[in-house]
Computed example of a mutant assay.
Amino acid sequence: MRPQVLLVFLTRFEECMAMLRGIVHYERTHQIWTAFHDDEARAEVDPRWLESKRWDGIISRHTTPGLVQACRKLRIPLVDLNDVPRFPGVPKIRPDNVAIGHLAAEHFLERGFQHFGFTGFSNDGWSCERRDGFIEALQLAGRECNVFDVNYPGDVTPSWDIDQITALADWLKRLPKPCGVMACFDIRAQQILTAAHAHGLLVPEEVAVVGANNGAIRCELAYPPLSSVAPNAYQSGYRAAEVLAAMLAGEDHSALDERIEPVGMVTRPSSDVLAIDDRNVAAALSIIRERSCQGLTVDQVVAHAHASRSQLEKKFRRHLGRSPQAEIRRVQVEKIRQLLMETDFPLKRIAELAGFEHVEYMCVVFKRLTGESPGEFRRKTEAKSIQSD
């Protein structure tokens, strides 16, 4: 008879879906199970529900003391994927939070930042580990970090959110600029973005922001879209299935506490900038990022930056090695690339969305800056996608 395996995962969380994909991959290539997905996590709170069926093993992302106690009573092997302190005798697989902090720090250092901040939760071990990894990487580079930690109440209520945004704004205003700020996870990073916008701070030009966990929908809905360190949830799920299979074969993994390396940094506009300690250039870059695809002119950039055209040209060449006009074109070309990769829009529609009146001119600009036509770029991207599938 096939082993009966219970999977306790709330699928409203993106990382849970990735973990389940890793489990499915292992199960299909190594072990045939009959799996039941508890997508309401009822096994967490109702031992009677767990006792209603014979289980050979359990993998849980939402492990509680009650679930651990019930598994011990029923002698059911359990693998825990929850990023909390481990339960004695229960194998634990979780993200390498120190490495997540390191990646965020390296991301800012590569962009030339000299000032840094971290904000998280002092009562959560995973947040403290990410903070310590961030600080450690900065110290190795001879840099210091300003920390703003609070106690996490366990749930984000509207009143708590408002209070935190106010406190974060006060903290951000005191930080030297430009600065790179890491948040312990993406929800905290969204609070930073809101606080910065509410008090007139430019993101990413004055405050560059990075989160962690890389919830794709949450990050893309943020403004500007949020950079985030991506943990390897897929590998966590795969490894959990591998450990459970070994336990079902009689191996002892009760002392296991394994950390899974993150996939890497997913860079989005909230931190995709070079650190430039010049308010005129920062203001110019901000309007270029926001309005390059809406017919923006250099004269409009100059007016927004409160500098003369010749002064701004000199500053751009000193800090970026290119002119304001070239930066406008660079942003437009990046938009064209994105639309060619992510949509099947005709070139005429892409030209409109990228701020070009004539599609022919868009094609000339794109080929001059990339070395290939929009059609060639799209065909190459589609071929790579087919090969990866």
Rank of each mutant, 00 (worst) to 15 (best):
M1D: 08
R12Q: 04
F13V: 00
E14Q: 15
E14C: 00
E14W: 05
E14V: 03
E15Y: 14
C16R: 01
I23T: 03
I23M: 14
E27C: 06
Q31M: 07
E40Y: 11
A41I: 05
A41S: 13
R42E: 09
A43T: 04
E44I: 03
R48S: 14
E51S: 15
D56F: 09
D56Q: 09
C71R: 03
V79F: 09
P85A: 13
P85K: 10
G89S: 06
V90D: 07
V90L: 10
D96P: 02
D96S: 14
L103K: 08
A105D: 08
H107I: 00
G112N: 03
F113N: 01
Q114P: 01
F121P: 00
D124Y: 14
G125K: 04
S127A: 15
E129P: 03
R130W: 06
R131D: 02
D132A: 14
F134P: 05
G142W: 01
N146Q: 14
F148M: 11
D155H: 10
A167C: 12
L168P: 02
L172Y: 06
K173C: 11
K177T: 04
G180P: 00
R188W: 13
T194G: 08
H199I: 02
L201A: 08
V203C: 12
V203M: 04
V203A: 06
E206P: 02
V210M: 09
G211L: 05
A222S: 13
S227F: 06
A230L: 09
N232Y: 09
A233G: 11
R239L: 15
A240T: 03
A241I: 01
A246S: 11
M247E: 07
L248R: 05
L248G: 07
H253P: 06
L256F: 14
E258A: 12
P262M: 08
V266S: 10
V266Q: 15
P269H: 10
V273D: 02
L274W: 11
D278A: 07
N280G: 10
S286G: 04
I287L: 09
R289T: 00
R291K: 13
S292T: 05
C293Y: 05
Q294N: 07
H304W: 12
S308D: 11
S308K: 14
F316M: 08
H319E: 08
S323T: 11
E327I: 00
I328E: 04
V331K: 04
Q332N: 05
Q332W: 05
V333S: 07
K335T: 07
T343H: 09
F345G: 00
F345M: 10
L347S: 00
E352T: 04
L353V: 06
A354F: 02
E357P: 00
V365A: 11
K367N: 12
E372R: 11
P374G: 08
E382F: 11
E382I: 05
K384E: 14
S385Q: 08
D389E: 12
